[in-house]
């Protein structure tokens, strides 16, 4: 699964659904919903990749994940006009992919050797990684509002099946950010944590 899908959060969720005996169709649908955010990542990166041919876009699309998006978008937003930023994308993606394969094999071996792997809380590594990516993004008051709205909505909709609340929370958070940006007076927002 790691070789062909390459989507950490969807793989975690699919593993849970397989363990619960959920039907194949539902698991595929859930994967689609969980990964819809990658369509938004792709839309963010696309304007920077106008000049690239399809033979570049297809593999970069396959390797586009949360982690590669965050490192790549910050590279694209740097002011220099380097024509080789897509090589940066390719390099980070290939390294992440190789590492993901290696660690999946380690996990397969270790999972057989350790009696109760879930009790180690390793899935929490995804949460702290996302925290480390989110906090530096919070630089304006509009972003703070966007994050707060998304967070509260996610808590309120956490009971919805198949991670549907995630999509609702993300959309409301984006809407709140856009509204806040157009309503609030201009100026440097204060730095705030979660």
């Amino acid at each position: 699964m790691s070789a062909f899908v390459f989507a950490g959060s969807a793989q975690f969720i699919a593993a849970g659904l397989v363990a619960a005996g959920t039907s194949t169709g539902i698991i595929i649908l859930t994967t689609l919903v969980v990964n819809l955010r990658h369509a938004l990542y792709a839309a963010t990166l696309a304007p920077h990749m106008k000049h690239l041919p399809q033979r570049w876009l297809a593999p970069l699309g396959f390797w586009l994940t949360d982690e590669s998006f965050v490192v790549v978008v910050s590279r694209f937003h740097k002011k220099d006009t380097s024509a080789f930023k897509h090589w940066y994308f390719l390099g980070s993606a290939v390294f992440m992919y190789s590492n993901w394969q290696l660690c999946t094999w380690i996990g397969l071996a270790a999972g057989r050797a350790i009696p109760d792997p879930a009790s180690w809380g390793l899935d929490f590594a995804m949460v702290v990684t996302f925290i480390g990516m989110l906090v530096p993004l919070v630089r304006s008051r509009a972003t703070v509002i966007s994050v707060l709205v998304a967070a509260v909505t996610a808590l309120l909709t956490n009971q919805l099946p198949n991670q549907f609340g995630l999509i609702v929370a993300a959309l409301l958070g984006i809407l709140a950010g856009v509204l806040a940006e157009s309503l609030l007076p201009e100026g440097q927002g204060k730095q705030t944590n979660e």
Binding site: S146, L148, A150, G173, E194
Partner: peptide
Amino acid sequence: YVPPAVLAAIIVP
């Protein structure tokens, strides 16, 4: 606003 909103929605719950 996509990355901050999506990440917050995954993390906070």
